[in-house]
Design a protein around this nucleic acid. Sequence first.
DNA 1: GGGGATGTTGACTGACCAGTCAATCTACTC
DNA 2: GAGTAGATTGACTGGTCAGTCAACATCCCC
Lengths: 214, 214
Amino acid sequence: MSPERSATSRKAIPDKRRLILDAAVRVFARQGFHACRVSDIADEAGVAYGLVYHYFASKDEVLDTLFLERWNVMLDLIRDVDSEAIPVRDKLGAIASFIVDSYHHDPDLMKVIIVEVTRAANSFGDTHIGTIGEAYALIGGMIEQAQQGGQFKPEIDARFAAMAFYGTIEQLLTGWIFGLLPEGEEHFERAKWLVVETVCGGLESRAADQAGAR
Amino acid sequence: MSPERSATSRKAIPDKRRLILDAAVRVFARQGFHACRVSDIADEAGVAYGLVYHYFASKDEVLDTLFLERWNVMLDLIRDVDSEAIPVRDKLGAIASFIVDSYHHDPDLMKVIIVEVTRAANSFGDTHIGTIGEAYALIGGMIEQAQQGGQFKPEIDARFAAMAFYGTIEQLLTGWIFGLLPEGEEHFERAKWLVVETVCGGLESRAADQAGAR
DNA sequence: GGGGATGTTGACTGACCAGTCAATCTACTC
DNA sequence: GAGTAGATTGACTGGTCAGTCAACATCCCC
């Protein structure tokens, strides 16, 4: 029936599965994981209730799949960036760009990941703590290297600095998700620059040496 | 029966209510809001199931109460700090200190607030979006003032900068909550300094002017 | 010491929903 | 075109749990 990629996929397996995953993103984003029913996902996807359980063992597994799909892409990107011979500022800029672009292209998915996984200490966050922490650790490693190279000051624990960097980005996304910050192409582009400039360069103007500084 | 503050409180109303709230903090922190039952709260508090509904209209109202109690204390502190005639760095430092100390003194409560409210875009976060946003706005105002005064560079949108600051703190708490960062007196003290130093001064060492800098 | 108000109890109910399953359909093989 | 394997359907079930309520306890005022 559907003309696209019938030649690529040996059997027609992936279509409906993907349909369900994409529908789940929309439903989770709109109602939240706990508040929605599995039937909402099936309805949104236009398939029968039972089909969700043909492709996924449980409601949880649907969210797990969505999270891991995206997070692993990010981990790959971070590793790629890390292996390049470019300044830290550019490395961090590439990561910030990736995350902001991810939100730009699929805000619902990023909303779900942040709201339902990344901060969900008692449910999905706990399940995926290893995977989540890996990203923090990779960024931390990058920063540590920059400290050893003299580009970053050594007195700030690299792990803490990594959290500052990632926390800044995630809070920007949160601001967009909650409608507290202006969205749009220009704002997204500006945000990428801002994250790097804030975390690397700081908010203080270079000219003035603060009176209260040690 | 209980000797403490029987003279202070006209009637013995507050005791059991407080008991329930404190028990709820522990239960929410341990199991999560959605995963726990109201009977868990009652059991933890050592009171009958129905009593929870004598003091609170719903399970939701228990969490609402916990969040508002704490968040309003923070809003008061931010307003107080804002009205003082001290450098921005000290103002931001005072806010960071307050939040870190809050976590130090009652990690469970802060865990619940961050995990269940601050990022819960589809449930409690949405309900309290006004109250939450007020904190961001106050911090943003502080930063804007510092920009006008020349202490902070003007090219970074103050609202975005406020998110960077708050996001950094919240991510540190998240790191502690998930067991990804070391906890303890020294680490908490160090974290306060780190937040301010990172956000105000940046990660880059002053000496080196980056090759890639514009 | 009567009587109203407030505090406290826990069994019960009604709704809700994740997950099951037997039946039906589709597509491909030989 | 019979046979098989996987895809798809949706009615049903079993357990869970928020919130109700009627009864009992305690306190305090007159």
